[in-house]
Amino acid sequence: MDIHEVPQDSLHYKGRDQLKKLMYAVDKEGHYTGISSVGWEAENEATKQAWDAVEEELQHTKTLVLNGKLSPIAYFMRLKLMDVGLLASYVGKWKWQVKRHLNPKVFKHINSKTLTRYADLFGISVSDLVNFEKK
């Protein structure tokens, strides 16, 4: 890639355009140099798409939680960009235990110690976690 062809497509989304990356490109004499680039259209679209997917999934999960199909843990898990495996290792549980905790019926009976652990991880209070639907 020629240094004059290094794209400078900025994406004003979640601070993406605040970071200029270093790219390697070839100058007139054929020498490689580092060139600062604010972004490239193709890459920006992929970034945006990944976040759109996160957002979509989050809204979908929110509806399921409000309809009583999933526990609030599912919502906050998505909010923190986690999946069941990752959440399990953060709270120090087995995957199957966390999976059960996503069930609203099981969620009602989780003891306060475990609830605190989830709430601390999500950076919220236990009542925010338990009273999710009432907000």
Binding site: Y13, R16, W51
Partner: peptide, 9 residues
């Protein structure tokens, strides 16, 4: 300090 756009796990 990184823009949110990059902050995945």
């Amino acid at each position: 300090y990184l823009p949110e756009a990059f902050r995945f796990h």
